[in-house]
Design a protein around this nucleic acid. Structure first.
Length: 434
RNA sequence: CGGGGAGUGGCGCAGUCUGGUAGCGCAUUCGCUUUGGGAGCGAAGGGUCGUAGGUUCGAAUCCUAUCUCCCCGACCA
């Protein structure tokens, strides 16, 4: 992409309303613009990242046999009256009335909707277990939206739902999701720690929040330091339950679940930090299947109310969370997997024909090699280009100027380490794995 | 929802206390000089000061109401 033709409105100065790094950087990097409190437009660069995260989430859901679908944002109130949540939900739910005076709502979540669909379509044990998900915009009318995209009112969320014949099946579905989540966060370049969460009225140990450590996190957490130091996912075996046990047997708790005795027992192995919740999975049994009649017949002809679980990942929140976990004074530092472009190519002197030719050639080579490149061919000063590249945080910066051309080299900078080296074009391509 | 703060060109701010008809930096446009880490000089364009009432000869400034946004807390992916 040629930057001269792109839409990337970066800001030199920080908008006054943004207080935390990720929010400031997203505004400055031209990723988002605020529409109203907690509601944002996603500009091209921001949308690219959002989509990349969504794609990784999607791949890991598909990999465990969870099927993508898409449910509406607007739902009928009657559906929620059936589950009893229409009155329970409170002012966080945005209630709407259509032209026929029917009560509608902008969905804050989709348990009712999915259960109704399942109940109407699945009648036999032969079609169970089933796992379905969608990635859709939700709305929760937060009293106080804040932290930019991390606590918005409108947010993009992946929510999945599992349906099983019995508790053992539900546990298996839960475990599959648990491990899929670990893999998802790892691919996003995040160290997410599963922490025991409030399981609600069902009880048991089947509810976990996935937290990533960041100074601006909303809650104060404590955990065994093994969660920070180790990567148990690599050492975990094939057995699902064993893998899940590896991650759940060690102490890890969000602020409301902390246990001073357990923490004292850990001694030097205790780590306390602030963290951001980026996912939540839980088993809730027959809570909705009972109310909405999700009943199937088993092999003996008995009617069985299915066991359900739901599994959320805050996709839009992750954009902010990743930045919180990965930035410096100059700007964002994207993990390779979600970077909007892999390479930023800087033409240091657009008035120099030789330099332009060299840049155009390299751009063509990169593009042909399938490397998504943002090519800064604008007629501005070098300093501004470097500053913008640092701000938007692409993993690699390649800078070409007359001085380097004379010596047959270009400058290659690694955004994360800050390391700069002068290489020939071929060596630079090798470094990028081409 | 309790407590606090703020709305003035696209962005960041001053001016408000003490009323006199709006200013600075950045950005934008043009010209010249520059050109390898957010350049310099000169010129230009752009604001009915959140909105609505009121006080006054005169309101960004004083009074009243209202809307919006931000921060701290309680609540949530």
């Amino acid at each position: 992409m040629r930057l001269s033709a792109y839409f990337l409105p970066t800001l030199k100065e920080t908008p006054t309303e943004a207080k935390i790094s990720s929010h400031r950087l997203m505004l400055r990097a031209g990723m988002i613009r605020q529409s109203s409190a907690g509601i944002y437009s996603w500009l091209p660069l921001g949308l690219k990242v959002l989509n990349k995260i969504g794609e990784i989430v999607r791949e890991e859901q598909d990999a465990i046999g969870c099927h993508e679908m898409l449910m509406p944002t607007i739902q009928p109130a009657d559906l929620w009256r059936d589950s009893g949540r229409y009155d329970d939900y409170g002012p966080e739910m945005l209630r709407i009335r259509d032209r026929h005076d029917r009560d509608m709502l902008y969905g804050p979540t989709n348990e009712e909707q999915i259960t109704e669909i399942f109940a109407g379509s699945v009648k036999s044990y032969r079609d169970v277990p089933q796992m379905l998900y969608h990635i859709q915009w939700k709305f929760r009318d937060e009293v106080r939206p804040r932290f930019g995209v991390m606590r918005g009112r409108e947010f993009l969320m992946k929510d999945a739902y599992s349906f099983d014949m019995d508790f053992d099946g539900a546990r298996n579905s839960y475990n599959k999701m648990f491990v899929a989540y670990l893999k998802t966060y790892e691919r996003l370049g995040l160290k997410a720690i599963p922490m025991a969460a409030d399981p609600g009225p069902i009880g048991g140990d089947m509810s976990h929040e996935f937290m990533i450590l960041a100074d601006t996190g909303e809650s104060e957490i404590a955990c065994h330091k093994g969660f920070v130091d180790n990567d148990w996912l690599e050492t975990a075996g094939d057995d699902l339950q064993t893998t899940v046990d590896t991650f759940t047997e060690k102490y890890a708790a969000t602020d409301e679940k902390r246990d001073t005795d357990a923490e004292a027992a850990l001694g030097d192995d205790l780590v306390t930090a602030r963290a951001i919740e980026v996912g939540h999975i839980f088993y809730f049994g027959k809570k909705y299947s009972e109310k909405l009649g999700a009943i199937v017949t088993d092999s003996d002809g008995n009617n069985i109310t299915v066991e359900m679980g739901s599994y959320g990942i805050g996709v839009s929140r992750l954009v902010g969370a990743i930045i919180e976990a990965s930035h410096d004074e100059a700007g964002i530092i994207w993990p390779d997997s979600v970077a909007p472009f892999r390479v930023g190519l800087i033409n240091l002197k657009v008035s120099d024909d030789e330099c332009v030719t060299a840049c155009d050639d390299l751009y063509a080579r990169l593009t042909t090699a399938g490397i998504d490149t943002l090519y800064d061919d604008r007629d501005t000063r070098a300093g501004a280009k470097f500053a913008d590249m640092d701000l938007i945080g692409l993993p690699w910066q390649l800078a070409i100027g007359p001085r380097g051309i004379k010596n047959g080299v270009i400058e290659v900078k690694n955004r994360k380490t800050g390391e700069r080296q002068e290489l020939s074009v071929d060596d630079a391509m090798n470094l990028l794995g081409v």
